[in-house]
Amino acid sequence: MIAFILLSSIRDGTANDRVRGRQLQDRPCDEIYVVQEGETLHTISDKCGDPYIVERNPHIHDPDDLFPGLVIKITSSNPRSN
């Protein structure tokens, strides 16, 4: 009986993780965004729905000089859709 309860809770936990992951994936980007490895302004703009990232972030002097850990402001005009 105990094994059955443990097995059920493990399966329920993985299902909840999948639902939680889907909810995070479907939400628009946060207002404060931290650039990840391999991202460009174009990919972030597409992902977050903000075509004016450079204009809203005067600390970005060269749009080609993006690096992981750079913090930028995002103003999403529309939520992402998959």
Rank of each mutant, 00 (worst) to 15 (best):
L7V: 12
S8C: 09
S8N: 06
S9E: 13
I10N: 07
I10Y: 11
I10L: 15
I10H: 07
R11D: 03
D12S: 14
D12M: 14
D17K: 14
R18G: 05
V19K: 15
V19S: 10
V19N: 10
R20M: 13
R20W: 13
R20K: 15
G21M: 13
R22L: 15
R22P: 06
Q23C: 11
L24S: 13
L24E: 14
R27Y: 03
P28V: 06
C29A: 07
D30W: 04
E31H: 10
I32D: 15
I32M: 14
Y33A: 10
Y33M: 06
V35S: 00
G38Y: 01
G38N: 03
G38V: 01
E39K: 01
T40M: 07
T40V: 05
L41G: 04
L41E: 01
H42R: 14
H42M: 13
I44C: 04
I44N: 04
I44D: 03
D46P: 08
D46E: 11
D46Q: 14
D46A: 12
K47S: 13
D50P: 05
P51W: 03
Y52N: 15
I53W: 08
I53E: 09
I53F: 10
V54Q: 13
R56H: 11
R56C: 02
N57W: 03
N57P: 01
H59I: 02
I60K: 05
I60A: 07
I60Q: 07
H61E: 09
H61R: 15
H61N: 11
D62N: 15
P63C: 03
D64F: 11
D65G: 02
D65T: 01
L66N: 05
L66Q: 00
L66H: 02
F67A: 09
F67P: 08
P68Q: 05
P68N: 04
G69I: 05
V71M: 07
I72N: 06
I72D: 06
K73H: 04
K73N: 00
I74H: 06
